[in-house]
């Protein structure tokens, strides 16, 4: 933890849908082993930023480096190799609806490991029990609740013990206790696997509990207006918008 090694470096990133620019000139670094929080009001482009980072949407301008490699300037094979280190939890879960939960988790394992079926099933059960879904192996995504789908998505993201995990609002739709357990799980993944974790989150308690670095995206300014450790930001940030967000609007803009 003493020496910081950059894992993801974003340089001058501008993202847009057609002419509609969401955020411009973003620069930030996510270090190895960070739990990096992306904050911002609803609709400011957090999900879009994730899509730019994980290679689903090409940025309008700018670069994303993984280690030394510029993702969007690499060829397809290299991109595929980088993407294989990712585990992604989508905002809506994005479970494969025609497969049971355990098959959902098994698919990446089948594709990328030589494990036999029994081992794969055991891993799937383990991952499910990590997110509190023990016993739901043979349920289809349509047969479980929204919050459960979220957790199953999380289990799938962790299937291959990836180096970088991207979570889009992991605790949205969860009760406070499950949400707390999830925070513990995220911290635990970081500790035990040394993974780098990028989290989009609105949950203040969880942001303060897990985040050690963050950025705040603003829809008005269309760029990053605050960054750093969330706890420090709460104490030190001078920006009224960031303060309002971190104090739930109690300190007025």
């Amino acid at each position: 933890m003493n020496c910081l090694v950059p894992h993801i470096t974003v340089k001058d990133l501008t993202m847009a849908y057609g002419d509609f620019v969401l955020q411009r000139d973003m620069n930030f670094v996510v270090n190895r082993g960070d739990i990096f929080i992306i904050m911002g009001g609803s609709g400011c482009g957090k999900t879009t930023l994730l899509r730019n980072l994980v290679g689903l949407k090409e940025p309008a301008r700018g670069q994303v480096f993984y280690g030394e490699v510029s993702f969007w300037e690499s060829d397809q094979e290299e991109q595929g190799r980088i993407m294989r280190q990712f585990g992604i939890l989508y905002q809506s879960g994005a479970l494969w609806t025609s497969m049971t939960l355990s098959e959902n988790i098994a698919l990446p394992l089948r594709e990328y490991t030589d494990l036999n079926e029994a081992a794969i099933r055991e891993i799937a059960s383990l991952k499910l029990s990590l997110v509190g879904l023990k016993g739901f192996e043979d349920f289809y995504p349509s047969e479980i609740s929204g919050g459960m789908r979220k957790r199953a998505g999380l289990a799938r993201a962790m299937a291959l013990d990836p180096e970088i995990l991207f979570f889009d609002e992991p605790s949205a739709g969860l009760d406070p206790i499950s949400s707390r357990l999830l925070d513990d799980l995220i911290l635990e993944i970081r500790e035990s696997l040394g993974a780098t974790i990028v989290v989009v989150s609105h949950e203040l308690p969880s942001i303060f509990a897990i985040g050690n670095n963050s950025i705040y995206l603003d829809a008005e300014a269309k760029t990053i207006i605050g960054s750093g450790n969330p706890k420090k930001m709460l104490e030190e940030s001078q920006n009224p918008i960031v303060r309002a967000f971190l104090t739930r609007g109690e300190q007025k803009v």
Partner: peptide, 17 residues
């Protein structure tokens, strides 16, 4: 098409499949 709507195809793509 439904898989596209539910981001299921994105999920495959980011897995490198």
């Amino acid at each position: 098409g439904t898989m596209q709507v539910n981001e299921e195809i994105d999920a495959l793509r980011t897995l490198g499949i």
